[in-house]
Design a protein around this nucleic acid. Sequence first.
DNA 1: CGTATTTGACCCGCGC
DNA 2: GCGCGGGTCAAATACG
Length: 287
Amino acid sequence: MEKWDLQAVVGGSSINDAMENPQLSFGPWSFQQDEHHLTSFFPENFETNPNVLDLDELGELYKPFYPVFNPYSTQTILTTFQPVPRDQPAEKPKKQQSFPVNKDSPKPKRFSRKNQPNRVVQHVTADDLPSDVWAWRKYGQKPIKGSPFPRSYYRCSSSKGCLARKQVERSCWNPGVFIITYTCAEHCHGHPTRRSSLAGRTRNKSLTAAAKSVAGYKNGANVVSPMAMGIRDESVEQGRVKMDGRILTTDIMFSDDELVQRYENFDEGVCIFRADSGFVSSTMVWP
DNA sequence: CGTATTTGACCCGCGC
DNA sequence: GCGCGGGTCAAATACG
């Protein structure tokens, strides 16, 4: 049986649309994990489901794929996790950094591209772009091959020694969607206060650099999600919320362990896959 | 003047 | 070994 590594990012659709395609439903689920990461997940009826070919073809195009966690949104918003590859090569001795090293403030370690620690990928719409509790400082921008849009690089400016980084780029498939990749996702400090998180992120009342790059960006620059504001409903905290008597997943960012735990617990219900306009989506539905 | 952003240069991992 | 491409640095610039 083929097992798909979770490395690529795909888009999503609404759960109601997906529910109309029950032939693409699978479950219950099995998954594999190494010591620290979820490495693959697959439906146990993968081999017996007569529609597996559909999924297989999608897998060829988009494999591997991610689950989608916001079935409510009219616009696709998905939260995903990008684990490290299953087969990690033994760590090579690193070359000496060529730039001068200050003993008091060592330069952040540069990680292998294939071995980025704690990498989290999040897709958001322009509306949600400023919804970030952390204060970020832009330190670079690069054109990306194959994409008409540049990628911007940000580091956490809340704390001097914090290694948290994020990259923001527009999806070349859907320019209305922004792909935010967090690396070193754990901050070495607590959430900044609302005041401090705003301090330094805005030069003025005008838009941040990231916001400026958004065509058609709304003037409501202070749109902040409840999560970003630190308001955590208990059901949201657990990653599930009830709607129409079903328990659905929500658009929350998960750590490695949390995501693994989600699939461990997902032994009932179905996971619905759907292909739509070049995207593959999945929605987990608890009974 | 202090802080954030811009942008060209540089570094380095990785594939060939 | 070499070149490509992605990530980071840091000087210059912008802005309040």
